[in-house]
Computed example of a mutant assay.
Amino acid sequence: MSDPLPQRFPPSFDPRQVPVLKGAGDSGLRPPAPQRLTVPGLRALFNSPPIWTPELIKEKRFADRAPAHAAVLLPLVMHERPTLLLTQRTAHLSTHSGQIAFPGGKLDEADADATAAALRETQEEIGLSADWIEVLGHLPEYVTGTSFTVTPVVALVRPGFALQPNPHEVDDVFEVPLDFLMDPANHHRHGFEWDGVMREWYAMPYQDGAHERFIWGATAGMLRNLYRLLIA
């Protein structure tokens, strides 16, 4: 029998206002070797991955809903300084509304596998065709607090694409330098107690001109696993 679950965070919950946990710094960790963050380095890494252990696999549940399988795309744009393409979800969606996320969604019966689902969802959400995408491989499955078992699909994207975001699902699409996201100095661990349960997560706030892109939760957790792979 499962434990009773809180239906939601407090109505006033704002992850930006939750303190960074003391003693949660990564002073002993280093950024990946610069070569690992290049297009040739990423291809070599996924062609012959090292032995490594993901840091984050499963969040504590905070929504009482049926489990579902999903896939997301981590689209790494092949600039001289590679970037990660991210979306901001619209405010009216039923799950993770307003949050920064990877393009992706639930697997359909017609999807051959998680890769097919991630590519289909990316086309539907932001208008990025598979013709621009080179799939490198997968990260380990990640189970969110809303009971999605997510397969992260890592891919390279050729520059020069034109996007057509679906306004029903996506408010904005933007890029963040990969070396910023893979620097542990930019990984902040937050936590607070709600309904008798201590809940913790990573955040990677990025100042994008006038916008603060507050990357947190499952998105930051999967990025943290990518970081662990890159330093293995």
Rank of each mutant, 00 (worst) to 15 (best):
W194D: 02
K22R: 11
D131Q: 13
F180Y: 15
T144V: 09
L29S: 14
V39N: 09
D26C: 10
D131N: 10
A185D: 13
L128D: 02
D111G: 11
A101C: 08
H69N: 12
G209V: 07
S2K: 10
E175C: 11
M78E: 14
L74G: 01
A66L: 14
L73V: 01
Q207P: 06
V150A: 10
E134Q: 12
D172H: 14
V72M: 00
F174E: 06
L163Y: 09
D195E: 12
L76P: 03
M204N: 11
A155N: 05
D3G: 08
F46N: 00
A101E: 05
P152L: 00
A63V: 15
L86Q: 02
F214S: 07
Q207L: 14
F62V: 04
L86C: 07
W216F: 14
R30H: 12
G41A: 04
L21Q: 08
V72C: 11
T53R: 08
T95P: 02
D131P: 08
S129D: 07
G25K: 03
Y142P: 05
V20K: 05
E212W: 11
T38A: 07
P4W: 03
F102S: 00
V157M: 01
V154A: 05
V173C: 15
G23C: 11
V135A: 02
S27L: 15
H168L: 15
F46I: 02
T151N: 07
R120E: 04
L93R: 02
L139S: 03
L139D: 02
M198L: 14
V154K: 00
T149A: 10
R189Q: 12
Q17F: 10
G221S: 15
P32R: 00
G196A: 09
V153G: 00
Q164H: 15
R65E: 12
T122V: 07
T146H: 10
H190W: 05
S94P: 11
D131M: 12
S48Q: 15
L178F: 08
T146W: 04
L107E: 04
P6I: 00
R8N: 09
R158D: 11
D171L: 13
L136A: 09
A63Y: 10
T38N: 03
R65P: 01
A71N: 00
F102T: 00
T53N: 12
S97D: 11
H187Y: 10
D208S: 14
M1Q: 14
G127S: 05
P15F: 08
D26K: 12
R158Y: 02
I57Y: 11
R8S: 14
S48M: 09
Y227C: 01
L181H: 01
G104F: 01
Q35A: 15
T115G: 10
E134A: 09
S97H: 14
E125W: 04
Q164T: 15
H92Q: 15
G104M: 00
R189K: 14
V143F: 13
L74R: 00
A155T: 05
P82I: 07
L156N: 04
T83P: 01
D14W: 09
K58L: 12
I57S: 15
P205T: 00
L230M: 15
F9I: 01
N166H: 12
P54C: 07
E212F: 07
D179S: 15
